[in-house]
Design a protein around this nucleic acid. Structure first.
Length: 83
DNA sequence: GCTGAGCGA
């Protein structure tokens, strides 16, 4: 399940995300959206959970919670669906 | 070095 995580701390890394989500479920993959040129964090990222049930409970558990000192927003991500 | 709504290369 793809999960959209926003309002992250600019210091938060991908391993921080997967570590936070791994506490509530199995994280298949985690990625922080960074700038293509500078490589700085855009402040949001995506977390892919192994199953939707773990994804939903991870969202409910981490949504509007504190991560790295900042309150994050966790919600289902939108399909890319554009080729 | 910085900011703070929003959906990735």
């Amino acid at each position: 399940m793809n999960i959209f995580v926003a309002r992250l701390n600019f210091k938060t890394s991908q391993e921080d995300l997967e570590a936070a989500f791994a506490k509530f479920g199995q994280v298949s993959s985690a990625k922080i959206v960074k700038d293509r040129d500078t490589g700085r964090s855009k402040g949001f990222g995506f977390v892919e959970m192994a199953t939707d049930e773990e994804g939903n409970k991870a969202i409910a558990a981490l949504n509007e919670t504190e991560l790295d000192g900042r309150t994050i927003v966790v919600k289902p991500a939108n399909p890319k669906g554009n080729n």
